[in-house]
Write a protein that binds this DNA or RNA. Structure first.
Lengths: 218, 218
DNA sequence: TTCATTTAATGACTATCAGTCATTTTATAG
DNA sequence: CTATAAAATGACTGATAGTCATTAAATGAA
C-alpha cells in the first residue's frame, strides 16, 4: 500500500512549499505586515488550506525559524570539520556564524526576532522545546570544541569549559547583533566598519582563549 | 499669559499618565495582546483621546522604550560617579546594566524587543533617530570610562578604545540577553546559575581589560 | 453673567485581517 | 459507476487599530 506513503510525501512537500512561499512573503513584506492572504496567493492555495498545514500564522513563522536553526547548526558542524585544533574550531564557529548572517540575512533576522519573542500556545505544542533543542545542539558543538581545545592544549586549561561556551555564545551573538542592527549607525557615526569590528572581536576572542599567547587584548 | 503654559504642562502630564498606564497594561498582557481599549480603560480616557496624544500603538510603545533608555543611561551615569579608576567604572557600568535588568525587568525586555524591531513610519518622525541618540549617549559613557582607564593606567593601553567600547557593549548585551531569555533553560539543562555566569563574565572582562593583570581568562 | 470661539474629549463606525467551517472538489476503493 | 474518505475552498465571523463627526469644556470678550 504505497498510496498512504505517497500521500504522506505529498503532504510534506506541500508543507515545505508553504514554508518557502512564507519566506518569500514574510521576508519581503515583514512578518507583521504580510497577511495570510498574501501567503495563500504566493503559495497558490486558498487561505483555508494553509490552516490544514499550520495551526496559525505564528506556527508558519516558527517553521521558518526552525529551518534557520537547522541551517545554522549545519554551518557550525561544517565549520569544525577539517580543522585540526580545538581553538581553530572555536574560531571557525564564530566565523561561520558571521558567514551565516551574510548568506542568509533574512533567516538570521528571523532567528533574532524569534529569540526576543515569547510565543504563545497557538504556535503549536512544544514550540519552545523544539527551539531550545536546536539551540542546545548549537551549544553542544561549541562546548565540544572547547573541551577538545583544552585536551589538545590549544586552549588554556584554567577556564570552565561550560561557562566559557555559554559566555562565548552570548558574547558572539551580542556583537553580531549589534553590528547587524546598528551597523549602519556605527558606520556613519563612529566611523567604524562593522565587518572589521567583527574580525577584531574574533581576534580578541581567539587570543583570549589561546594557551600559548600570553599577551592578548580582551 | 500663564494659561498656555499651564495647558502645556497638563498636556505633558496627561501624556506621561498615558505612558504609565501603558506600562501597566502592556507589561501585564503583552504588547501584542493588550488592546488600545485596554489602555483607554486603564488611563480612564476614551480611545479617541489616546490618539490625540500618540499617533499609533507603536508610538506609545516607543515612548516606553525611550523612557527605559533614559533610565538605563541614568544607571550608567550613577554607576561611574564615585568610582576612582577607569577600569572600576567600566566594571560598574556592566554591573549597573545587570542591576537595571533586575530593577526593571519589564523595561529591560521592552528595550530588548525594540532593538530587534524595525519600526515603520507610523511610530512618529525620527523614531529611529531618537532611539539612536539615547543609545549613543550610553556608548559615550562607556567610551569615556575606557579612555579614562587608559589615562589613569588601570586599563591596558594596547587596545582601540572605540572598538573596545563597541565590542564590550555588544558582548555584555549579548550575555545578559542570553541569561534573560534562556536563563531558565540554562539553569535546568546546563545546571549553571545565570546570575553566577554574569559575574563570571564581569570578572573575565575586568581581568581582560586590566593593565596590571598579566594572566587572565578571557 | 452670557455668548462665541477655541480646544479637548468622545465613542460609534470603518477597514483590515487572523482564523473558522459548511460546502464543494478530488482521489480512492469496492 | 457509486460510495466513501480526504483535501481544498472561500464566504463568513470576531477582534481590534485607527478615524471622524459630534459633544463637552474651557476661555475670553462684551
Amino acid at each position: 500500500m504505497g498510496i498512504t506513503e505517497r500521500r504522506e510525501r505529498e503532504k510534506e512537500q506541500r508543507r515545505s512549499d508553504i514554508i518557502r512561499a512564507a519566506e518569500k512573503v514574510f521576508f519581503a513584506r515583514g512578518f507583521e505586515t504580510a497577511t495570510m492572504d498574501d501567503l495563500a496567493a504566493e503559495a497558490e492555495l486558498s487561505k483555508g488550506t494553509l490552516y490544514l498545514y499550520f495551526k496559525s500564522k505564528d506556527e508558519v513563522y516558527l517553521a521558518i525559524v526552525l529551518k534557520a536553526m537547522k541551517l545554522l547548526r549545519e554551518y557550525f558542524e561544517n565549520a569544525v570539520t577539517h580543522k585540526s585544533s580545538g581553538l581553530e574550531k572555536v574560531r571557525a564557529i564564530g566565523e561561520s556564524y558571521i558567514q551565516f548572517h551574510e548568506d542568509y540575512p533574512d533567516h538570521y533576522k528571523a532567528l533574532l526576532f524569534f529569540s526576543t519573542l515569547q510565543m504563545d500556545e497557538t504556535s503549536g505544542p512544544g514550540a519552545e522545546l523544539k527551539a531550545f533543542v536546536e539551540n542546545k545542539d548549537v551549544m553542544e558543538v561549541l562546548y565540544s570544541a572547547i573541551i577538545e581545545g583544552i585536551k589538545d592544549e590549544s586552549i588554556r586549561s584554567d577556564i570552565d569549559p561550560l561557562k566559557t561556551a555559554l559566555i562565548l555564545w552570548g558574547q558572539t551573538s551580542g556583537v553580531l547583533q549589534l553590528m547587524t542592527l546598528k551597523g549602519h549607525a556605527i558606520g556613519s557615526h563612529f566611523k567604524e566598519d562593522p565587518k572589521e569590528l567583527l574580525n577584531y572581536f574574533l581576534d580578541l576572542m581567539t587570543r583570549a582563549l589561546s594557551k600559548t599567547e600570553e599577551k592578548f587584548l580582551l
